[in-house]
Simulated scan of single mutants.
Amino acid sequence: MEDGPLFPARWWWALLDLAIATFVATLAFQHVPVSLTHTLIGFGMALSLLLRRRAPLVAMALVYGLGLLQLTLTRELAPYDVAVLFTIAAAVTYGSVRQAYAVGAAVAAGLVFTWFVDTSTGDPLVFGLIVALGAVVWSVSLVLRQRKDAAELYAERAAAAERERDQLVKLAAAAERAAIARELHDVVAHSLAVMIVQADGATFVVEKDTGRARTALQTIAEIGRDALGDMHRIVAVMRGDSEEDASPTRRTGLDQLGVLAERARSSGVAVSLRVDADGIDAAEELTVVRLVQEGLTNVLRHAGAGTAVEVDVRARDDEVELSITDDGAGTPGGREVGGGNGLVGMRERVLLHGGRFSAGPVGGGWRVHAVLARRVLSR
């Protein structure tokens, strides 16, 4: 735990105010042998100065009132009238802008009153010196006040910018977590769905048809290796490695659609695949692959083996259209994988590309339709 300063800033300001009040009181003390009125008024001004920081307008009103009383009774200025300058500085520096200009008006009125009452200011040179001194104190105090306001404004803006930056960091982290969760869901849910279907099939035929069982087990192993590779790629991206460094020989492109279709066919789903999407960029290819992957996963989970699915991917000049339609004629399995977040993830992927997404029953089956706003690549 770090120790604070030996003398806090407020102590130094209190000592400064006490020193100023002592200085004015000393000037007033010099009038003790001459005039008790001067002495009492001077001491009153000195005590009023102790309030100049906490209540600057009150301190100025007290000092100004005592000054007017002094001019009325003694008809002359005194050295301790310097207290008026200290209260002017405090009222302008710590008050509002409106109060600062009100103080300026009060100073001008006081100078006019002094000109008519004080016999010692009859010399224009002396009076001009007093006016100049009051104007300088007021002007310098106003500049200091404006600088203080500017410093507070900059500090407030800096604090607001820091809060905004922290909020943006949190939002970015949340978006990154959502993207990673979406990617993990697509990889794990599809792979597990196919592996479960293949494992169930192998269990049923292991004693009757060892060849089909062996093929199913080989498919499970292949899917597991691919899923593990995808997991390594995602983890590498999370650690900050580039995708090329993480997986130099594997790229998620449209060629993966054939692999996904073949895996679905091996699980008993009749997939008809039509792809006409040359020239789309890597991000669009990845989105299309993930949408098809999730769509086939949903067919395996909800419609089951025996379902016929049509997958159609077409690229136009300004968009990529994708549809996945099944006839719902399959036999759903008895177990499901996942928590029903697939459609939400698909919609989020499409919206990231500024596209449109819809999903719902059609005939006896289900249809997923997505349109991505295409970014045309330069040739």
Rank of each mutant, 00 (worst) to 15 (best):
D278M: 01
P8W: 04
Q99D: 03
R316Q: 11
W12S: 14
R375L: 09
L372S: 05
H31Q: 15
L71M: 15
L49E: 02
R356D: 08
V169P: 03
T93F: 11
A161D: 15
T87W: 03
G333H: 11
R367Y: 09
R250C: 15
V194C: 12
A100C: 03
A159P: 00
A151Q: 06
T74V: 14
R225T: 05
A173V: 06
A83W: 08
G229P: 05
G328W: 04
R374T: 00
A227H: 07
G224N: 08
I324N: 09
T119A: 13
L85I: 06
D3Q: 14
A270T: 15
A28I: 02
A102Q: 07
N341Q: 11
I41W: 10
T325L: 10
H353I: 02
L351I: 14
V112E: 09
L343H: 12
V82Q: 03
F86T: 08
R145N: 11
A19K: 05
V289S: 14
A373R: 14
A359I: 06
A173H: 06
A213N: 01
R54M: 02
R52V: 07
T252N: 10
H353L: 04
I88W: 04
G360F: 00
P79Y: 12
L15N: 01
R274E: 01
V140W: 07
S378E: 14
A59P: 04
V362A: 15
V84I: 10
G279C: 07
V187K: 05
D241M: 00
R356N: 08
R356Q: 13
A202K: 11
E321P: 00
M60Q: 01
V32A: 10
R263L: 10
R233K: 01
I196L: 04
E222K: 05
D312C: 09
E244N: 04
V194E: 04
I223Y: 06
S267W: 01
I130C: 02
G44Y: 08
H31A: 09
D317F: 02
I196Q: 07
G4H: 02
V311C: 10
E156M: 15
A261Q: 07
A155W: 09
R349F: 07
G363P: 14
R375Y: 01
L27R: 13
